[in-house]
């Protein structure tokens, strides 16, 4: 029982960075922009967030700096793809390569450093309840923040005026422009939000999950977040489900490695990546579902003719 509760708790911490990054990417993609730079933005958020905590000693500063640096990285992408009309796939890859290099360089001074940790919340009475107390009220604050942001994003996209405009921009940029909506400005905002969330997800990894800085520490989580958006068929509610699923697989393979079933550790470590492929295949083999849910203008550059 104790092991199960502990597993569920760590599963949530494994899912949280994915929830942050995938929520941001989902909003960006809903506006019609495919940003393949998630991995790079997460690394940038992770290293700058870590650096900020080391320098200031306050975890909050790390989270703010982490998301802000992710946002700034996303703005480079936005200027190139939205203003200079570059290819979104190529630019996203460039952002990931850039982020990998920049974070490795900045992080040199921080390898092996330890930091002030963010502690789990503790509510009087509630957190002390048997079993449910810890499962519901015993996580670190960012687990809740991720879920709240995801919920708010879903609500924003579905029920607010600007959310609908954002979706319209992603589904039919030409018409949205003709009606008079600022297509490019909305996409800038969506990409910036995506960057801030990826940065926050990265900062979560280096500040809470590990908590330390190591080169390339995201280990493909940015790409898994991209796959999660497809898995979720661009619906926020399913992002959470997918992230928990991947968090579960990560914890499962870690536990299995510790238990040692005679399966080499490397093969267990492959599981999250192989699971991503399997999930992609299962979702993508239904082309109608993809076509119905994917934003119609995803990845297409837009330039207003007068």
């Amino acid at each position: 029982m104790e092991l199960l509760i502990a597993s569920i708790m760590t599963m949530m911490t494994a899912a949280t960075p994915l929830v942050f990054a995938a929520t941001g990417e989902l909003v960006s993609e809903k506006s019609g922009v495919l940003n393949l730079g998630v991995e790079g933005m997460m690394l940038i958020g992770a290293v700058f967030g870590f650096a900020a905590v080391t320098l200031t000693g306050t975890p909050l500063a790390g989270l703010l700096v982490g998301s802000l640096s992710g946002l700034l990285a996303a703005l480079i992408f936005a200027v190139l793809t939205l203003t200079l009309l570059s290819n979104q796939v190529a630019t996203g890859l460039a952002l990931t390569i850039f982020g990998t290099g920049l974070s490795a360089l900045v992080g040199l001074d921080y390898v092996g450093e330890t930091i002030v940790q963010i502690r789990a919340v503790h509510l009087p009475v509630l957190s002390d309840l048997p079993i449910v107390g810890r499962l519901l009220f015993g996580h670190d604050p960012l687990v809740y923040l991720a879920i709240v942001i995801l919920g708010l994003s879903g609500w924003f996209l579905k029920h607010t005026r600007w959310g609908m405009i954002l979706r319209a921009v992603g589904d039919s940029d030409g018409s949205a422009h003709a009606i008079g909506y600022p297509v490019i400005a909305i996409r800038y905002a969506a990409v910036a939000f995506g960057g801030a969330m990826a940065g926050l997800g990265g900062a979560y990894l280096s500040l809470v999950y590990t908590p330390l800085w190591a080169e390339n520490m995201t280990a493909g989580r940015g790409w898994i977040a991209l796959a999660l958006v497809v898995f979720a068929s661009w619906r926020p509610s399913r992002v959470l489900l997918g992230a928990i699923l991947f968090g579960g697989i990560t914890i499962l393979q870690l536990n299995a490695q510790a238990a040692g079933f005679g399966i080499p550790g490397a093969f267990m470590s492959m599981l999250p990546y192989i699971a991503t492929i399997v999930v992609l295949v299962l979702i993508s083999r239904d082309p109608i579902r993809i076509r119905l849910n994917a934003p119609a203008c995803l990845g297409r550059p837009f330039r207003a003719e007068r």
């Binding site: 570059s86 190529a90 630019t91 460039a94 390569i97 990998t100 490795a104």
Partner: peptide, 13 residues
């Protein structure tokens, strides 16, 4: 690695 990212950014621009 940083140079490699930057060169691609400039090129795309």
């Amino acid at each position: 690695g940083l140079f490699q990212g930057i060169i691609l950014f400039y090129l795309l621009a």
